[in-house]
Simulated scan of single mutants.
Amino acid sequence: MFHDIRAVLFDLDGTLIDSAPDLGAAADQMRTDRGLPSLPMARYRPMAGAGARGMLGEAFGIGPEHPEFASLREEFFENYESRMTQRTTIFEGIPDLIDHILQRNLVWGVVTNKAARFTEPLTRAISLFATAGAVISGDTASHPKPHPAPLLEAASRLQLRPEQCIYVGDDERDIVAGLAANMGTVAAAYGYLGAKVDPKAWGAHATIKYPKELLQLLA
């Protein structure tokens, strides 16, 4: 499907790594610290792709408009920062996928909305990322996704044109950003998608149910 591709870019949480256990635990600690009952991980998991907004929404039923959201978000960040590699794992099939990408003489990178405060220590701690050609965080470029700026920054760092890259992500904003950047787009349907979400409605060029299906799309 995709031709003359030189690089594969990925979202991080829900696409390459399963960080839901650590994200959920960080939010749940906030509940138990306040004497509230713990919630099952199944409650947090579908919201993991939405970061602090999703976790605090599930834990306390509040959104960014709540007057205490900013302070609660920082508490959540501190909890997460202290545990972010404890239970986070790489999705099954991702290491083999990266190996095959490298064997095809392609480069790969990460474009995430996760702040560099978390992205940099996390990717340093996981050996998979040693071969990544670029790691772009949510505060690296002038705007986060769904703006195309982070993806364009990644292409620039790899010294490639945007149309030489494809972007793989598990959220609609990933596909919106990829299309705006003039990249090929692939929706990852194996991440944190809830039952009510249809990734085929996002307008991506392709959808994959397993990581290695991506190889079939690369000519």
Rank of each mutant, 00 (worst) to 15 (best):
M1H: 06
F2V: 03
I5N: 02
R6E: 10
R6L: 08
V8K: 03
F10I: 07
G14N: 01
I17W: 03
I17Y: 03
D18M: 07
S19T: 08
A20V: 01
D22T: 10
A25D: 13
A27L: 05
A27C: 06
R31N: 07
D33G: 13
L36M: 15
S38T: 07
A42L: 01
A42E: 03
R43M: 06
Y44F: 07
Y44R: 02
M47S: 04
G49F: 03
A50R: 11
G54F: 00
L56E: 00
F60V: 02
F60I: 02
G63Y: 10
G63P: 09
P64H: 11
H66R: 12
P67S: 13
E78H: 14
E81H: 15
I90E: 00
I90P: 01
F91I: 00
E92S: 14
G93D: 00
D96K: 14
L97E: 02
I98S: 09
Q103E: 15
Q103L: 14
L106G: 13
V107Y: 12
N113Q: 10
N113F: 08
A116K: 11
R117A: 01
T119F: 04
L122Q: 03
L122D: 00
T123V: 14
A125W: 11
A125N: 13
I126A: 12
S127A: 15
S127H: 14
A130I: 12
T131F: 09
A134S: 15
V135L: 14
V135K: 12
I136V: 14
I136F: 02
S137F: 03
S137A: 15
G138C: 07
D139N: 09
S142T: 15
P144K: 08
K145S: 04
A149L: 09
L151K: 06
Q159Y: 04
R161I: 08
E163P: 04
E163K: 12
C165F: 05
C165H: 06
C165Q: 04
I166L: 05
V168M: 05
D174M: 10
V176P: 08
A177I: 07
A180R: 13
M183A: 10
T185V: 10
G191L: 04
G191Q: 04
G194S: 07
G194H: 02
G194N: 03
P199E: 04
A201I: 08
A201F: 08
G203A: 13
G203P: 11
A204Q: 08
A206V: 00
A206P: 02
I208A: 02
P211H: 01
E213F: 06
L217T: 05
